[in-house]
Design a protein around this nucleic acid. Structure first.
Lengths: 330, 330
DNA sequence: GTGAAAGCGCTAACAA
DNA sequence: TTGTTAGCGCTTTCAC
């Protein structure tokens, strides 16, 4: 391994001078600076972040904990975040919690051990309060994304309740009355059922509790959904995530429901394939969300943040799609 | 920050003893061991990987460079790799190269600076030979995934040429003659066009070069593809990646081609939505691929690897799908 | 079974 | 403008 010392020896100067050149600080004579740069280049010097981090106490790294590694929706959010932090010269270190509080704990410890400068997470539970406090004590900014598990920590969420309201209203308007609401049984998310209820109430319609189905995260539910449809006979379905959307479509296929087409369906998290299938979707403003999240983190890192807890909530919108010839319920 | 020293002071012992306990080494009296553990717990001690890495020269971290952050296919591969390494107690640090050799260089340097123990990458070019050599010199194992840019480095690839052969043969069998091949213009991939040609030859059919279209990575090509279809009038299309598949479907919609349905199409990289749309796909054995890749890395880390260059190639399979009533070309 | 001490590669305070 | 030095938190001899 080539170290500062090696470069210094090569040039015949001191480690600190080389360090200054490498970090682009002033106060080095141009001539020396050039020779040092040359030597770095020819020796193939690469700095050692472990040493840097140890010495400076910071890592230029943002930790991000993603709750579901298999959900494209989270992956695309992650993609945007990584991009934005890249622009600000921050590395990103990702950890996956698999919607499991224990693993979440391990991952938080791992990221702390890596000396992250800030943490963005989609919390799985509120059981890691202890670690959250440790992180606060170290003055590491935290932002919760998509869910608010800890009330005293900044958060950026989507108003899923409103999303459900939009979806439900839309379907009611189309003449559907037995609308099923499928959602993942995850805590700390703004409750979709709340908006669903509101839409029913505003339309003076009676709602059946049994049309609300909560499912555990991180597995396929096609069979369960098909049984549910058979038993409860909904005339429309709102799928609370893109993955549940896929499961619902599979269930429909399983059951060979000929009249149950895409117009009976609204799926959360707009994805490219929904456009192709002409399925209406609740589109999350991921870009905006990421922007706010990054903004909060950078503000906090630069000490610009307010003493109060920031809670930001962005509003989803309904994307109505229909095939020509389709439309009102017949 | 709570350090080993703090814990040692609390217990009234030395740093080295605490270190032994924390790392689960023997040679500490049970009674002392317990007290140390207690103290770690109550003080909330978290080890510092920077210090550990600096001292030991290794990081328990595998670096992975993904070439396209927006491609679900790579994301799902990444998901599997992360899972597998987790089982083996390795962290994963991800870098994204955005299909750009310059960024790839930066990312490689970043990962090296982080002292990764091994590197898995989907190389974008062969222009980073210099860094590859540095990595080799540091005895850090490297595995190339999906592409072989450096012949002297281990690799695990998919036989895309064979995939194209399967897709083309299938379409020819269905009666199509003017089959377009759309692929991303990326170097070092087994050439799809080779299998495409072979299928034409075996069927004693004349192939038109102009039906082969190469497109740059990392943008949408719907318009370009629609122009291409208008001009060249193919009667079937093979899309070389899932993203090109989406673009092709959009192009078909743009052109309102009524008779050009899913049966005229084969898309590389099987994705859940293709099942829903009944689109035939060339399915990559991602799980197997990841397994081989992880195996190679672990072998190398444990010194079990052979002196020769490992080149593994896995074979894709064709998943034929059809709606009832569809089938042979009419 | 336990502790003292050196040093991994780097930065920052200070001295020259 | 440059060099010397101490020390970040940890592991690893080596001595006891």
């Amino acid at each position: 391994m080539v170290t500062l010392r090696d470069v210094a020896r090569e040039v015949g100067t001191s480690e600190s001078t080389v360090s200054r050149v490498v970090r682009g600080l002033g106060n080095v004579k141009p001539e020396l600076r050039e020779r040092v740069k040359q030597a770095c280049e020819s020796l193939g010097y690469i700095p050692d972040f472990s040493a840097q981090n140890l010495r400076t106490g910071k890592s230029n790294t943002i930790g991000i904990i993603v709750s579901d590694i298999n959900n494209h929706f989270y992956n695309s959010t992650l993609g945007i975040l990584v991009n934005k932090f890249r622009e600000h010269k921050y590395q990103v270190q990702v950890g996956y919690s698999y919607e499991n509080g224990e693993i979440e704990k391990e991952v938080m410890e791992m990221l702390l051990a890596n000396r992250i400068d800030a943490l963005i997470m989609t919390p799985v539970s509120n059981q890691n309060r202890r670690l959250i406090d440790t992180i606060k004590k170290r003055n590491i900014p935290i932002v919760q994304l998509y869910r608010t598990a800890y009330r005293d920590i900044d958060s950026v969420c989507v108003d899923d309740s409103h999303g459900a309201y939009l979806a439900t209203s839309h379907l009611i308007e189309r003449g559907y009355r037995r609308i099923a609401l499928l959602s993942v049984n995850v805590q700390f998310t703004p409750h979709r059922s709340e908006g669903y209820r509101r839409a029913y109430e505003e339309n003076h319609l009676q709602l059946e509790e049994e049309l609300i189905l909560k499912l555990p995260p991180d597995t396929s539910h096609a069979e369960e959904i098909s049984r549910f449809i058979t038993r409860k006979k909904p005339d429309a379905v709102i799928a609370g995530t893109n993955l549940l959307g896929v499961d619902t479509l599979k269930a429909i296929e399983l059951l060979q429901l000929k009249d149950f087409d895409e117009s009976h369906l609204v799926i959360f998290d707009d994805m490219p394939w929904m456009e192709l299938l002409k399925i209406s979707a609740v589109s999350q403003p991921v870009e905006l969300l990421a922007e706010k999240c990054v903004g909060m983190v950078l503000d906090a890192l630069e000490g610009h943040s307010s003493p109060e807890v920031n809670k930001d909530r962005v509003v989803p919108r309904l994307v109505v799609r229909e095939r020509k010839g389709s439309g009102e319920k017949t």
